[in-house]
Each structure stands twice: as structure tokens, then as C-alpha cells.
Amino acid sequence: MQNQQYVSPALNRLIVGAERPFDLHALLQSTSRTLSNLDFEHQHEMQRVERGRTDPALKRQITDNLKRRHRERRQPYLALIAELQSHLSSAVSDELQAAG
């Protein structure tokens, strides 16, 4: 599959210098794993704070900050996943039309 023809300029910057055809599926899987790791880390941090003996008002402030930071860290990965899924679905659609 010639995935490179479906890559946007933003994704193209990720794959510049690749010596072999770039695999969008592999990037999607890797990005999904990274997102899962971020979620796991966030859940662990939240549990640690909630189990702690910190003042409830301070606890709320800490958890609010953790949630904000988590959203900020996730956003670029979510955007990349959406773009990859769009490119992959376009590629599949184009291949089906070419075969049909």
C-alpha cells in the first residue's frame, strides 16, 4: 500500500527521512499506546492524590490541575489519531474504488 500519498504536511514532517515506506497503521497503533500510557499515568496520579491525607480543598486544587494537564497532554495525540484515521479511511476507500 502506498500510504505516503495520503499524508498531510503535518504527518509528512513526522516521516521525513524514512528509508522505507511509512506505515500509517503502525503510527496509529503507537499513538494509541502512548495515549493509553498517558491515561494510565493520569489514573495512577489521581488515585495517589485521593488516597493521600491532604486537605480536601488542596486535594481538589491538585486534582483539577492534574485533569487540566491530562487534557492538555492528550490533545495532540487525539488530533493525530483523528488525522491518521481520516487518512487511513481515505486510503481504503480509494483502494476499493480502484479495485472495483
Results as ranks from 00 to 15, higher is better:
27 L>K: 07
47 Q>S: 14
65 N>S: 11
95 E>D: 12
61 Q>R: 15
38 L>V: 08
38 L>W: 01
49 V>A: 05
83 E>V: 06
93 S>T: 10
42 H>P: 01
20 R>H: 14
41 E>W: 06
25 H>T: 08
33 R>S: 11
10 A>I: 14
58 L>S: 07
33 R>P: 03
19 E>H: 09
55 D>I: 06
50 E>G: 01
19 E>I: 10
82 A>E: 08
4 Q>F: 08
34 T>C: 05
49 V>E: 03
97 Q>T: 11
14 L>F: 09
87 H>D: 13
72 E>L: 15
2 Q>A: 01
22 F>I: 05
65 N>Q: 12
89 S>D: 07
78 L>W: 02
5 Q>G: 01
3 N>R: 06
69 R>K: 14
39 D>T: 10
93 S>N: 08
44 H>L: 12
43 Q>Y: 11
26 A>F: 09
51 R>H: 12
14 L>Y: 08
77 Y>C: 00
9 P>L: 08
5 Q>L: 09
74 R>I: 07
25 H>E: 15
10 A>G: 01
76 P>N: 09
71 R>P: 00
17 G>M: 06
60 R>I: 00
34 T>E: 15
28 L>P: 00
33 R>T: 13
80 L>R: 04
77 Y>F: 15
38 L>H: 06
66 L>F: 06
55 D>F: 01
35 L>K: 08
63 T>R: 05
97 Q>H: 09
92 V>A: 13
24 L>D: 02
85 Q>D: 10
7 V>Y: 06
92 V>C: 06
45 E>K: 15
23 D>H: 06
76 P>F: 15
66 L>Y: 04
26 A>Y: 07
55 D>G: 01
30 S>V: 05
13 R>Q: 15
56 P>S: 05
28 L>Y: 12
82 A>V: 00
66 L>C: 05
44 H>V: 14
45 E>Y: 02
83 E>I: 06
24 L>W: 04
16 V>R: 13
1 M>C: 01
12 N>C: 02
64 D>N: 12
64 D>G: 07
61 Q>I: 09
29 Q>R: 12
93 S>P: 00
43 Q>A: 14
4 Q>L: 12
95 E>S: 08
19 E>W: 07
7 V>S: 05
6 Y>L: 03
61 Q>N: 08
37 N>L: 10
54 T>A: 09
89 S>V: 02
4 Q>M: 11
59 K>G: 03
17 G>N: 03
2 Q>P: 14
56 P>N: 08
